[in-house]
């Protein structure tokens, strides 16, 4: 009987482990990524491949150099790479993507002690770093075209949110922005980051995650809901100055952020109450940046700012224990 295993109870375990969760999120991102590939072609494939491979390589190298166990098998580096790629313009040069991976894995995650200890979403840390350091490359948005189109030159242009901001700066009203058919951002036929263009694909992925119970509904619903309510109020007050809520919901990075970035388990509160506070905070900050900030898009900044508040939210929303007197 010497070969028996002995451990503390419990002796059985749910099959849903960390690699399983990472796999589910990756599966859920696939529709969004495919839409990106469809509209942006080969460059999008390159960006995704470079980001995923470089993230895994950087993580393995760092862990090797610092003498830690190599944990690339848990799938978190693959996921970080994929999320990073989906947050970059499809025309990003390879060095920009690799730099992003380096920042995401090392500055965003490993310096804090690896998976589970990072206060900020690694992919967003990298994205914001690149956005501030390389504003030109990071805001050169190739316009969508069909994967099968034969046109040789890539046309670049503004994202709908960017166009909106320009219109307000130059003409003082949103109505000056080029008219947008809401069906285009819903399906993905707009300029933007590789993975954020199709609200439909992202919502499908998000619903998959909620159905599989990988994430709870609290963050996406409260985030999107608070953006809708807040932009709705301002649109109601002055439709000339403020775009309508439907536009805000399905353009830009809101869907990607709400379903995939703000739901990153490591960097969000652990209780449902905390998740609601977190999500509403994200929504409010996003809207503030979009309406009055210098940048056209505020999802990344909003999530990072709220990430910083997670310890406080956790403390404030600690559940009352059973039998508390």
């Amino acid at each position: 009987m010497k070969d028996l295993f002995v451990s503390s109870s419990p002796h059985i375990h749910s099959p849903e482990d960390t690699p399983w969760i990472m796999r589910q999120v990756i599966y859920a991102l696939i529709p969004g990524a495919l839409i990106g590939v469809y509209f942006f072609g080969i460059p999008a494939v390159t960006v995704i491949a470079v980001a995923v491979v470089s993230c895994v390589v950087v993580e393995a190298l760092w862990q090797k150099l610092t003498g830690k166990d190599i944990t690339i098998a848990d799938g978190s580096a693959v996921l970080t790479g994929l999320l990073l790629a989906m947050n970059l313009p499809s025309g990003s040069p390879w060095w920009l993507v690799c730099l992003g991976s380096l920042i995401a894995i090392i500055v965003g995650k490993q310096v804090y002690g690896g998976l589970g200890n990072n206060p900020f979403n690694p992919a967003l840390v990298a994205r914001v770093f690149l956005l501030i350091s390389f504003p030109v490359q990071m805001t050169t948005w190739p316009q969508p075209r069909s994967f099968f189109s034969q046109a040789a030159d890539t046309v670049t242009g503004a994202t709908p949110l960017g166009a909106l901001k320009t219109a307000i700066f130059e003409h003082g009203t949103v109505t000056a922005a080029p008219h947008l058919n809401l069906m285009d951002p819903f399906l993905g036929n707009i300029g933007g980051s590789l993975g954020e263009i199709s609200a439909l694909a992202l919502i499908l992925g998000g619903i998959y995650l909620i159905v599989r119970k990988v994430i709870s509904w609290h963050i996406p619903v409260c985030y999107i809901g608070s953006v809708a309510v807040m932009t709705g109020i301002f649109w109601f007050i002055n439709p000339n100055m403020y775009a309508d809520p439907a536009f805000h919901l399905i353009s830009g990075g809101l869907m990607l952020g709400a379903f995939f970035m703000a739901t990153d388990m490591v960097t969000t509160p652990i209780t449902n109450k905390g998740k609601i506070v977190f999500a509403i905070g994200c929504g409010v900050i996003t809207v503030i940046i979009r309406l009055w900030g210098g940048y056209p898009e505020g999802v990344s900044f909003a999530i990072l700012i709220m990430n910083a508040l997670v310890p406080l939210i956790n403390k404030a929303t600690k559940p009352g224990k059973f039998g508390a007197v």
């Binding site: 295993f5 451990s7 059985i12 002690g113 998976l115 589970g116 388990m265 998740k275």
Partner: peptide
């Protein structure tokens, strides 16, 4: 049926 694998860091999933 049992669980004898090694553990890793908490991912704060809640």
């Amino acid at each position: 049926d049992t669980n004898i694998s090694w553990y890793s860091g908490c991912i704060s999933c809640g």
